[in-house]
C-alpha cells in the first residue's frame, strides 16, 4: 500500500534549484533508502516530507506530496499535526540538554497525549524499549540525555521520535556519527520499527542501504535517477549512472 506519493516536487533555494520534478511512491511499513552523492538533494527531499524546509526563508517547494491521500504542501495543512505524524531523526544526535525522561516526554506533553504521570511513565518506558535503550538507561532516567554515548544518544533521539507514535519516521544519515557496533544496533532497530512505522532513510553507505531497505531511490544532481526495489537497484540497475555510483566509480 502506498503511504507517500510525491508528484512533480521542485525545490529551490533562492535562485538555485535543488530538486527537479521528483515523483516517488513510498510503501507503507517498508524501509526506503535514499542514496546519491553529496549535495544531490537527499536531505532536501526528506525535509519536504515534514515541511522542515519551511524554516528556511529562501526555500521554495512546489508540487504535491500526498501522505494518506492528503496534500501536505497545501496551505491548509497544519505543520504541527503533520510533524506529530512524521517523526524525524537527524544526522548528528541532538537530544535536548535535559533529562532522558524529559527528552522522551516532550512530544507527548506538547501534543497532550497523556492524562497522568503513570501514563507518561508508560509511554517513556515503551518508547525506550522500542528503541532498545531501556535496559541501559532504566536506572538513570533523570540524568541528562547529553551525557550518554553517541550511539545511545542517537537511540534516545529515535525513542523521542517514536514517543508520539508517528506513522512515518524520516532518518537523515542516522549512523554517520556512530561506530560500527552502534550502527549495527540502529540497523537492527530499523528492521524492528518497520513493522509499525514507514521508514525513509538517507544513507551514504551502500552496504547499509542494501542491508536495511526494501526500496531504494538514487538521486543525482537534484534528479531522482532511478527508484525501485533494493534488490533490483543493487543487482540489476537500469541506469548507467546508478550502476557507476553503486560500484563506486563516482560519488
Amino acid at each position: 500500500m502506498k503511504k507517500i506519493n510525491a508528484k512533480n516536487v521542485n525545490v529551490s533555494y533562492g535562485s538555485k534549484q535543488a530538486l527537479f520534478d521528483i515523483n516517488i511512491d513510498i510503501e507503507q511499513n517498508e524501509v526506503t533508502a535514499l542514496i546519491g552523492p553529496s549535495g544531490c538533494g537527499k536531505s532536501t527531499f526528506l525535509r519536504c516530507l515534514n515541511r522542515m524546509n519551511d524554516v528556511i526563508d529562501i526555500c521554495k517547494v512546489t508540487g504535491e506530496i500526498f501522505i494518506n491521500d492528503f496534500n501536505i504542501l497545501d496551505k491548509k495543512c497544519d505543520v504541527v499535526r503533520l510533524r506529530e505524524k512524521i517523526g524525524m531523526v537527524f544526522q548528528k544526535p541532538n537530544p535536548f540538554p535535559k533529562t532522558i525522561y524529559e527528552n522522551i516526554a516532550y512530544g507527548p506533553t506538547i501534543h497532550g497525549m497523556t492524562q497522568s504521570k503513570e501514563e507518561m511513565d508508560e509511554v517513556v518506558e515503551l518508547s525506550l524499549k522500542k528503541a532498545a535503550l531501556w535496559n541501559e538507561v532504566k536506572d538513570r532516567l533523570h540524568e541528562v540525555g547529553t551525557g550518554l554515548s553517541g550511539g545511545q544518544q542517537q537511540r534516545l533521539c529515535i525513542a523521542r521520535a517514536i514517543s508520539v507514535s508517528p506513522e512515518v519516521i524520516l532518518m537523515d544519515e542516522p549512523c554517520s556519527a556512530l561506530d560500527p557496533i552502534a550502527t549495527a544496533q540502529i540497523e537492527e532497530l530499523i528492521d524492528e520499527l518497520k513493522n509499525e512505522h514507514t521508514i525513509i532513510i538517507v544513507t551514504h553507505s551502500m552496504a547499509q542501504a542494501a542491508r536495511v531497505s526494501q526500496n531504494t531511490g538514487f538521486f543525482h544532481l537534484g534528479n531522482l535517477i532511478e527508484f525501485g526495489s533494493t534488490d533490483k537497484i543493487f543487482k540489476n540497475p537500469e541506469n548507467q549512472k546508478t550502476q557507476d555510483y553503486i560500484t563506486g566509480r563516482f560519488g
Binding site: V55, N94, Y106, I110
Partner: peptide, 26 residues
C-alpha cells in the same frame, strides 16, 4: 545550536514553543 530548534520543531512544537521551551532557557 540550530539542531536543538530542529529537534523541537520536528517533534511538532510550534515556533513559540520551541523558543520558550528550549531556546530561551538555554
Amino acid at each position: 545550536p540550530p539542531s536543538i530548534r530542529e529537534a523541537a520543531l520536528a517533534m511538532g512544537a510550534s515556533r513559540m514553543q520551541t523558543t520558550m521551551h528550549h531556546t530561551v532557557p538555554l
